[in-house]
Design a protein around this nucleic acid. Sequence first.
DNA 1: TTGTAAGCGTTATCAC
DNA 2: GTGATAACGCTTACAA
Lengths: 329, 329
Amino acid sequence: MRQAGWMPTMKDVAREAGVSLGTVSNVLNGVSATDQTRQKVVEAAERLGYRINNYARALKTNRTYSIALILPSLEMPFFHHLAEAATAALTAKGYRTILMITNYDPDAEQKCIDMVQENKIDGIIALTYHPYLKVDASVPFISIDRHCGASISCISSDNYGGGRLAAEQLLARGCEKVLYMRIGSDVASEVDKRGDGFESVCRARGTAFESIILNDNETDEPFYRYLETHVENGHADFDGIFCNTDHLALRILRKLTSLGVRVPEDVQVIGYDGLPDYVTGVPACSTIVQPVSEMARTAVSLLLDSDKSVPPAVICLPVHFEAHGTTKE
Amino acid sequence: MRQAGWMPTMKDVAREAGVSLGTVSNVLNGVSATDQTRQKVVEAAERLGYRINNYARALKTNRTYSIALILPSLEMPFFHHLAEAATAALTAKGYRTILMITNYDPDAEQKCIDMVQENKIDGIIALTYHPYLKVDASVPFISIDRHCGASISCISSDNYGGGRLAAEQLLARGCEKVLYMRIGSDVASEVDKRGDGFESVCRARGTAFESIILNDNETDEPFYRYLETHVENGHADFDGIFCNTDHLALRILRKLTSLGVRVPEDVQVIGYDGLPDYVTGVPACSTIVQPVSEMARTAVSLLLDSDKSVPPAVICLPVHFEAHGTTKE
DNA sequence: TTGTAAGCGTTATCAC
DNA sequence: GTGATAACGCTTACAA
C-alpha cells in the first residue's frame, strides 16, 4: 500500500507495532529487547516495507558509512582494478563507495577533496597528482602510491624490491646491457623507487645500464629516438629493458618489433603492474606483478579498522615476477 | 582554530556574522538578502571554514544529489568507459556517484538496489543481468541495454542498425559467406538485436550466413570447433565474421591466426563496441562504434532533467563503423 | 526492558 | 529582508 514517493519511518513502524519509537530503534540496532517486542517490531517493519534512512542516521551518529575513492581515470587497468577491488572490500564491510574521477587534474583533485568534506565522508582513498593537496586532518585519508604529507599513510607495492627483482631477472637471463625506461608524473611518489631498485642491482653487479626518465607531459619520442639510434639492422647494442609500467612496455615492444628487433631473443623486456589483459586473461608481457587487490583491501582496512594511534607512513606490499613471453626461458 | 573532528555549523556562522540562522541559510542558498548581510555571512563562513552538511540538507529536502551506478564489473572497456562518462556527467551536474559492482551476480544486483533505497538515492543507473529485478517505482531508474520493465527507460546504442551496418560493410567489401558469432547473457536485452539486424541484411541480399549463439556460461569452444572444421589448410569456406563484441572478435582473431587464416585477406572481421585499446588509443579491430559517452550523458539527463511525464521505453543512440585493420581497403 | 524527549544541521513557514 | 521556530528521521541518555 506504499505510495510513490512516500516511505514509512520508524514512527510508522512504532505505531504499527504498538511500541515506542525508541524501542523500534533499539530492536533494529540489535539492542536488548524482549523476543516478543522484537518480533512485533520486525513484523511491522516487514509489513510496511520499512527501510532505514541512512541520512537521518548519519546526521545523528556522524558516521556515513561511505568513503570517497578518488582516481585520475578508469582507463588504465591499474586504476579500474583498484576501483573494483576497493569497492568490493568496502561493500564487504558495509560501506558505500563514492567514486570521483579527476582526469589527472590537480584542481579537480582538490575540488573532490573539498566536496567530500561536505558529505561528512568517513574517509578517503585517493591516487592523486596534486603536489600539495590540502586535506582536513579530521578525515581519515589513505593515499595510493603518493606521499601526501606526514600524517597520511601511503599504500604501495614494494616498488624498490620490484625494481631490484626486474634487474635480477634480466641479469639471470643473461642480459649484459640494460635500460630503464620511465615515464610518469614528476610528483614525488613511491613509484620512483622502481628505478632506484633497478639501478642499485645493476650497480652492485657491475652491469652496464642506462636510464631514460620522462615526464607525463612528454611523448614517447625520446624513448623511440634512443631505440632507433641504438638499433642497427635489427641488432641492438642493449639486451634488456625494464619499463616502469606494462603500459609503457607494450608501446616499447611495438617499437622494437617495428625496428626488427626480436623479443625475447635479442632484447628482453619486463614491465610493471602485472594486470591481466582482458582478452587473454594474463599479462601481455613479462612483468613485476603488483598485488592490486591486497593493496585495495589494505587501504580499506587501514581506513576503517585501524585505531589510528600511529598511522604507518608507508606500507609496501610484496610483488613477484611473472614471465609472459617477453623474457627468455 | 578548527579542532580535529569539529566542524562549524550554520549556527556558528550565524553567531559569527551576528545574524540569525535562517538568514545564513537564505544567503547560502542564494535567496534574497541585503548586500550587507550577504557579505557578513559570506565572510563569517569563510573565516570559520564552514562547509554545508549535505546529510542534514538531504534529510530536510529529500534530495541527496547522489545517484547509484550499478555495474557488473569494471574490467570490460565498455563498463569502465561507461562508469567514467557517467561519473563525469553526474559531477558536472553537481551529483555524486555511488559505485556498486555486482560481479554479474543477480543476487548482488538485487541487494544493491535494496541498499540504495536506504540511502534515499535520487536515482539509479544500472546494467544488470537479473531477469526480474524488483525496484521501487518511486526511485528513478535508467537501465543500460536491458529491458527491466514497462516503466523503466532503457538506453542503448542502435544495436539493430549496428548489426545491419556490420553486414553492409562486410558485403560491400566482397564477402559472400558470413558468420555471426554471439556470446552473452541469455537475459533478454537490446543487445540481441545486433544479430537480428545483421541477419536481416544477409537475408535481404540473399547472402549465405550462419549464426552461432552462445550463452555466457559456455566457453568459446563451439566457436573454435566451427572454425576448425570450416578451415582447411588456411583456407576458410567463409569470408566474413561479425562478432557481437570486440572482446569476442579479438579472441576469434587469435584463433583465426592460429589456424593460418589471413585477416583481412581471407576473412574479414568486425566487432562491436569500438572502444580504444588502452595502448594504441584506437580500437583493436574493425568495429561498430557505440557512443558510450553519449549513452552515459543521456542516461544522466534522462534521470535528472526529464519531467517523467512519459518516460521513453528505449532510446537508441547512433553507431558508426570504423575500419581498424581487420577489414579490407 | 521500554518509553520519553532532546537534539544532530539543515530548510521552510511564519511573523515582524 | 530578517529572525524565531517547527520539522526532517533518526539515536541516545535518562526516567519509568
